[in-house]
């Protein structure tokens, strides 16, 4: 199997996007710092949310990861299996790399804030799970692990959606594009209230609490980790079922 070449190629596709993304993040950090120096929050303000931006970025990357690569691999005598293994390695590598970079950004901005004052930055992990233990190596490693799993779940979800759309014909695409949101937003709540007495809604809320905690300092990051890992495995598993029968639609 030619996994090395296909992984290298797929990683290359992320190189430019990653560079642009972190350039924007850097500009935002600098902008916030400059604005704070100009109008001074006197250390009372904070900002956060880069991890959520990364999740959206990786989800979009996942959405753009299939068709072009698939055609290039078909052109170059690479099997679907090798391409898929290469994609999985790429997703894991990029998720790990970005979770490390995001933690480093959070730590560096924190250090700068402590040194020169101004707006403080709190990463997602600091916001939700800081009650667990004092900051230190273990805390940071746990943070990297959990955010890596979140990122992997985002990129694999994007990949699954794009492979699903690639395999569908036009009519099916329209049905799914309209049917899924309508079902989630209107039909499911209606069925839930009419026939299940709100049991489905309660289950969704329980899953939400299971992942994020109940916002009273009890959130367990390993619940999030578990859900993200299971979600990634399911997304990859379903993607493989779609990829292994994918054909050139040129």
């Amino acid at each position: 199997m030619n996994i090395k070449a296909t992984t290298k190629y797929q990683l290359r596709e992320y190189k430019k996007s990653l560079g642009s993304y972190y350039l924007i993040v850097l500009l935002i950090v600098v902008l916030f710092t400059v604005l704070d120096r100009m109008w001074g929050s006197e250390g009372s303000g904070s900002y956060n949310g880069f991890e959520f931006a990364t999740i959206i970025f990786l989800f979009i990357c996942g959405l753009n990861s299939f068709k072009g690569t698939f055609l290039m691999m078909m052109q170059n005598g690479i099997s679907r299996k090798s391409m898929f293994i290469g994609a999985s390695i790429t997703f894991l590598s990029v998720s790990m790399l970005m979770s490390v970079i995001d933690r480093v950004i959070a730590m560096v901005v924190d250090l700068i804030t402590k040194a020169i004052g101004g707006l403080s930055y709190e990463g997602f992990y600091d916001l939700v799970y800081s009650h667990r233990m004092p900051k230190g190596i273990l805390f940071e490693l746990e943070g990297i692990l959990v955010t890596c799993a979140m990122y992997a779940a985002a990129v694999t979800a994007g990949y699954f959606i794009t492979t699903l759309y690639y395999r569908m014909n036009k009519a099916l695409k329209v049905i799914v594009s309209v049917g899924v949101p309508v079902t989630i937003i209107f039909i499911l709540p209606l069925i839930d209230s009419m026939f299940f007495n709100g049991i489905i809604g309660d289950l969704v809320l329980k899953l939400f609490y299971f992942i994020f905690g109940d916002f009273h300092g009890k959130a367990n990051p390993y619940n999030m980790l578990l859900v993200c890992i299971i979600s990634s495995i399911i997304a990859l598993g379903l993607s493989w079922l779609l990829v292994k029968r994918a054909v050139d639609k040129n």
């Binding site: 199997m1 030619n2 072009g68 055609l71 290039m72 078909m74 052109q75 005598g77 690479i78 099997s79 679907r80 299996k81 090798s82 292994k244 050139d248 040129n250």
Partner: peptide, 20 residues
Amino acid sequence: RENDKALQKIYMMGEKDYYP
């Protein structure tokens, strides 16, 4: 079929574009 070793021995120049 789905065999990298065999596929590496064949190159096809297609009429359509497969390159980015």
